[in-house]
Amino acid sequence: MNKFIETIIEKSIILIAFSTVAVLFLIAFFIFKEGIPFLAQYGLPGFLTGSTWLPGEDKFGILPMIIGSIYVTLGALIVGVPLGVGSAIFLVEFANKRIRNIIKPAIELLAGIPSVVYGFIGIMVLAPWVRINFGGSGLSILTASIVLGIMILPTIISITMDSLTALPSVYKEGSIALGATTWQTVIMVLLPGAKSGILAGIILGMGRAIGETMAVIMITGNAIRIPTSLYDSVRTMTSNIALEMGYALGIHRSALFANAVVLFGFIMILNTIAILIINKRSK
């Protein structure tokens, strides 16, 4: 009897585990089913390199959105990587236990704040500041970069901390025993030793930044054009889908699905690179 129950539990757990994978495949299947026929009809090159997006005139070029996503993501990395890696180094190598016990949970809390709240702070506080100090509308690449840079901090910090603490302690001891300071030890031994882990963390943070939608809609201004300065308004691929899906019909709707296919491709590539790097490290 017990054995029977055991078998049932085992089977249902397997089912639950596989349902996650099934959901992933369903999402992918659904997006591709709607998007691929459009791409076949409209042509992938024209879709990727066209710079006009006028659904009313059947013009679907997502180049401005691709560039918008890339700029905002790069900006987020420029803000987030130095802050994140720096914080992780401080927490692992310099902070004492008490400080670590205060800061670590605070960073984890940062990951739990809903993105609409980040967007709200961005639009109410940061955008006016940018407008006054740098001109433009304030809803810009710069504003989005700062907000997204802060949003990806938890990812970068926790993965960098993990890869620093995973290094054998003999590296640190060997360096200290040669008369190096802690800072020299970090720069010359620990960072090179942990570089693949840190890189994986950065790429995962990048995936988060490129996929972020709500905060980005609120603070980038969403203008469809190729930006020429940091203070220009842009629209990202995610915002494009979220803003227009509500009222899109027919071929317009299919074009948004095709946009999702491109986004899916970007994120798959980033995650694959991260997984490859992590696997290479554990070998």
Binding site: I176, A177, V189, P192
Partner: peptide, 28 residues
């Protein structure tokens, strides 16, 4: 620690090149 060096139980070269390991001390 410069004057009194230490060799550990498990060899612990740094994850760097042979040359960089060797001149690690002078460099720091």
């Amino acid at each position: 620690r410069r004057k009194v060096g230490m060799v550990f139980q498990r060899p612990n070269p740094f994850p760097l090149s042979i040359f960089d390991n060797c001149i690690y001390g002078p460099r720091v």
